[in-house]
């Protein structure tokens, strides 16, 4: 494990890299000199106390938030300073699950999920229909085609948004708090969905979460944001760490859970 987070990137090629990023919102510094990387084909969970910039980091990777200084690279391409048109091209390899779903209120669930395919794909309507149906079935929503987003529950909305994020088969999926506000069955469902996506399609998943149990169960790498800098490592490395920042964040319950979970995972 390392501060400024580079342990897993030593073993796997990085899909997304953040170098020397600084960002302030008014007088409040969010990042001072952030370095971290996200390995290709792995699940990285970004954790940390509220207000440490987890969602901002995701938005930065998506090009929605420009840093004051520093470098953000997606698949080797520097994205800071790209025009909106160039960012659009880059974003075709990204999918993003927003915290509130961000589905278009005025369109049905089917139309929402079909939107990226209709806009950029070259498929015919029949093929789009097949893709959308497959996406909605993958997230366990086979019968909601004609409903509006407002007619779905929070968990269903999140799953429909996930279907939209993955329907165009992006290489990287960014998930902002996918578990927040969900009941335990829905947390498990989304967790296993994300894990399946990673295993079956080899997607790089970058997830922000406060939900410690799910995050640690699915993570290959955990990135802990602390006052503008990062500490990263595998869940096992976190379990073994005596770093006060990690111990403080996890608390006793978290540390206990972590050591138990990791020992079960390792087959002890």
């Amino acid at each position: 494990m390392s501060a400024e987070g580079l342990s897993l990137s030593d073993q796997h090629s990085s899909h997304v890299e953040i170098e020397g990023v600084a960002l302030r919102f008014g007088d409040r510094p969010v990042f001072s000199d952030l370095h971290c990387s996200f390995p290709r084909g792995k699940i990285t969970v970004i954790m940390g106390p509220s207000g440490t910039g987890k969602s901002t980091l995701l938005r930065m990777i998506g090009g929605l938030q420009k840093p004051d200084q520093g470098c953000v690279r997606v698949a080797g391409q520097e994205i800071v300073g790209l025009s909106e048109l160039e960012l659009g091209r880059m974003r075709k390899q990204l999918g993003m699950l927003f915290q509130n779903g961000a589905l278009l209120d005025s369109m049905s669930i089917f139309e929402n999920v079909a939107l990226p395919l209709r806009e950029h794909g070259r498929q015919g309507e029949d093929e789009i229909r097949l893709h959308v149906r497959a996406g909605l079935e993958a997230v366990g929503l086979p019968d909601v085609d004609d409903l509006l987003p407002g007619e779905l529950s929070g968990g269903m909305l999140r799953r429909a948004a996930l279907a939209r994020a993955i329907v165009s088969e992006p290489a990287v999926v960014l998930c902002d708090e996918p578990f927040s506000g969900l009941d335990p069955p829905n947390v498990s469902r989304i967790e296993s969905l994300l894990r399946d996506l990673n295993r079956n399609l080899g997607l790089t998943l970058i997830v922000t979460s406060h939900h410690m149990a799910s995050s640690l169960r699915m993570a290959d790498q955990v990135l802990l944001l602390q006052e503008g800098h990062s500490i990263s490592g595998s869940p096992q490395e976190l379990a073994e760490s005596r770093d006060s920042a990690i111990v403080d964040f996890m608390g006793e319950d978290g540390a206990e859970y972590l050591s138990h979970h990791v020992s079960v995972k390792e087959g002890h």
Binding site: G62, L64, L87, G95, F98, P116, R164
Partner: peptide, 18 residues
């Protein structure tokens, strides 16, 4: 404004839709 507040505009951007 509501679309902006609920990230729908950013959602479009992330789908490479202006």
């Amino acid at each position: 404004g509501s679309m902006k507040a609920t990230d729908q505009l950013d959602g479009l951007r992330m789908m490479a839709i202006d």
